[in-house]
Simulated scan of single mutants.
Amino acid sequence: MARIVIEGIRKEFGGVQALKQVALEVRDGEFLALLGPSGCGKTTLLRIVAGLETQSAGRVLIGERDVSTLPPRARGLAMVFQNYAVFPHLTVFENVAFGLRMARAPKDRVQQQVARAAALLHIEPYLQRYPAQLSGGQRQRVAVARALAVEPAVLLMDEPLSNLDALLRLEMRAELKSVLADGGTTTIYVTHDQTEAMGLADRIAVMQAGEIVQIGSPTEIYHHPRTRFVGGFVGSPPMNFVKLSAAGGVARLGALSLPVKARDGDVLLGLRAEDLSPAEPGQGFRFELRVAEPLGSHVLLTGTAEGQQMRVVVPHDLDADLRPGRVMELKPRLDRLNWMQADTGMALERAQ
């Protein structure tokens, strides 16, 4: 069992609370992403799990073992960092073998584990090269192979792909997801990139200001954010939020009467850009186009509705006039409406 349980973790730096009573369970064999903006506490939490930082309160369990006071080497885990952290004076083989050598593994096991890890990450042709002879993507593969070679119960990854270009990130995402799924390794992956989190993780824990504000599958996080922050942070483009007035369980948006479970007053309607489509005149709401951006598979429209900014994704072959200033009517998917309190940004119960 490599289940990770984080209980009431708090961390203070000089009177500043970096983590506020964080509680989290990572299931055995699960890939969990910690997602959030810079300064939200995700790397601090990862370092506490690793034993590189000491919590101010709370404890960490790996399996059934309380590791809160154990040094990193005694926790049965491996870590991959943002910078490759490969040894320039060692060959790729010796870099991958480093953890095994430190554990005084038998020579035949070293050979076997290095060969296995190299095959998984497709670096067999480079085993006798030095890091200076490799590309950035190849060096990152070496760092991951070194972590996997020791067969850790837990793998911790801190923004491991952020130094790579877009194509390499895409390639490494696919490799990581495949390798870690095959190995059944329990993984915590820190990132500020919501595309990485959505593509890799079984579940995502979204962090804001030292707290986990939502945890769920990528689909749950994307389609049913619990707060305005989550809806605005996850997704590209971010979720649209339109301030409307509710009365008698209904909010008006142009010609549309939308059911909402809220007291009379202001509410926020959250709409994903791809959940909006053109409507017949008088069957939707007015949208005034300001900018159209052709992005290959689709066109991103930016404009205003109800006097508020809105982004809309339409097919690239849409037969329509997309010049700035054009007014068109749009309608939302009624099963994808997200309602939130206007003052707190917290999600309201979904109306039927």
Rank of each mutant, 00 (worst) to 15 (best):
T44Y: 03
L148K: 10
E211T: 13
V49P: 10
Q283I: 04
R59T: 07
Q341D: 15
L200T: 13
V5F: 01
L34D: 03
A132D: 10
A320K: 00
M79L: 14
Q128K: 13
V96D: 06
G58W: 00
K261V: 12
E94H: 14
V110M: 08
R311Q: 15
L155I: 09
F233C: 08
F241H: 02
G29Y: 02
R10Y: 07
A74D: 15
D108Q: 12
L256M: 10
R129E: 01
E329G: 07
E12F: 13
L148P: 08
E211K: 14
S38H: 07
R3M: 14
R101E: 09
V22L: 12
T187K: 05
A166L: 14
L35M: 08
R311E: 10
Y222Q: 01
V154P: 11
E288Y: 03
L244V: 05
A143V: 00
E274S: 13
V206R: 01
L295H: 12
D343N: 09
V213W: 09
G282D: 04
Q55G: 11
A119Y: 02
Q309H: 13
M1R: 12
A50M: 00
R263W: 03
K331W: 11
L77I: 09
L70S: 08
P125Y: 02
S38K: 04
L120A: 11
N240V: 02
I6E: 04
Q113L: 02
P71Y: 08
R116S: 14
L168E: 00
R146N: 05
G184R: 12
F31I: 07
F31T: 03
T69A: 15
K107A: 15
S297G: 14
A23Y: 10
R139A: 03
V144L: 15
F98E: 13
L156F: 01
A305D: 06
L244C: 06
N83Y: 12
V230Y: 03
Q194N: 07
L256Y: 11
V92C: 07
D165P: 02
T186C: 10
D182G: 06
T54N: 13
A85W: 02
P152A: 02
L127M: 01
Y84G: 11
Q194R: 11
F241M: 00
A209V: 11
A305I: 10
Q194K: 10
Q133Y: 11
R290D: 14
L120P: 01
K20A: 15
Y84E: 09
E94D: 15
R252N: 12
L100F: 04
I188S: 05
G232R: 05
R141L: 05
L256A: 11
L334M: 14
E306T: 07
C40M: 03
V230C: 05
T191R: 10
I221W: 00
F13H: 12
L34Y: 08
R290N: 14
P71H: 08
R286D: 15
V96A: 03
A118M: 04
S38L: 09
R323K: 12
I4M: 03
L200M: 15
M239F: 07
P131H: 01
G199T: 15
A103S: 13
A18M: 06
A2K: 06
A255M: 05
A347G: 08
